[in-house]
């Protein structure tokens, strides 16, 4: 049973590596962003010991850890899914005895593996090249809480992206919803800057959405900017969002599939 998905993972890994140029392009874009963010914050911090409650080291670590986290959490194959649905290629999976969710997750994991490795490499090179110092959590429990929160947010992203991509069953110009989703996501999750930069009311509003729980709060756990009890609370909220999106993604998928079966593709 698990062998199916393992094989899918292994094949997808090969394929991702095969698309060298597109991988390289992705990564170069990412590096450009972290390098500019890194120097932006460095300049802003100047000689100040802290900014918005972040020490200099924490703020610069935010940028670097973000690169790694983004590569792992926000890597998925939403666009391929959209393409497969709107071109009808998905049919070839639907007639085979395999779960499309499991299959997609296996493929996602393969991409995450490659991007994670690349992100570590980039951050490593940056650290070596510019002598940046990265904050490392002191306590073992922080590492544990951080790992769990990253695992949950990866799953959360998987189901959210799956749900949004499934909208392609209805919209013939199906990239639209996914495009909006990705744009909003990067901003609201705190990928570009720590959300503390935003006005208080906006922060509060964002906290009502699942996005900050995907990157911003996990990084704050990592940077030990919250007490363990608070971190556990974050995990709890993540779990609630995850449960919701598992349900929603499954429901949308089922509806989409029955629509597909009704209208063809």
């Amino acid at each position: 049973m698990i062998r199916k998905y393992w094989t899918a993972y292994a094949i997808s890994l090969q394929e991702t590596l095969q698309r060298r140029s597109s991988l390289l392009m992705d990564r170069v874009g990412g590096v450009a962003i972290i390098v500019s963010l890194y120097y932006f914050w460095k300049a802003l911090l100047g000689t100040k010991p802290s900014f918005l409650g972040y020490s200099g080291e924490q703020m610069l670590s935010y940028v670097l850890v973000m690169n790694i986290l983004r590569s792992f959490v926000f890597t998925g194959r939403g666009w391929q899914l959209v393409g497969e649905i709107s071109s009808g290629r998905i049919s070839s999976y639907l007639v085979r005895p395999i779960s499309y969710h499991g299959y997609t997750l296996a493929l996602d994991l393969a991409q995450k593996t490659v991007h994670l490795a690349a992100a570590f490499l980039e951050v490593g090179v940056l650290i070596a090249a510019i002598g940046a110092r990265v904050y490392l959590p002191h306590s073992l429990s922080t590492w544990l809480l951080f790992s769990v929160s990253v695992a949950v947010s990866s799953l959360l992203f998987f189901f959210m992206e799956f749900m949004v991509s499934s909208l392609a069953f209805w919209t013939s110009e199906s990239g639209g919803p996914l495009f909006c989703f990705e744009l909003g996501l990067q901003f609201a999750a705190g990928t570009f800057f720590p959300l503390d930069v935003l006005p208080h009311s906006l922060q509060k509003a964002l906290a009502m959405t699942p996005f900050p729980y995907m990157v911003f709060f996990p990084i704050n756990i990592y940077l030990e900017r919250m007490a363990p009890a608070e971190a556990v609370k974050i995990l709890g909220i993540q779990a609630v969002w995850l449960a919701f999106f598992v349900w929603a993604a499954t429901a949308v998928w089922k509806l989409g599939l029955s629509n597909y079966s009704a209208e063809g593709g």
Partner: peptide, 13 residues
Amino acid sequence: LVMGQRTQLWWEI
């Protein structure tokens, strides 16, 4: 099911 115009083969490998 084999549809002439559609492929189930992985393209890059």
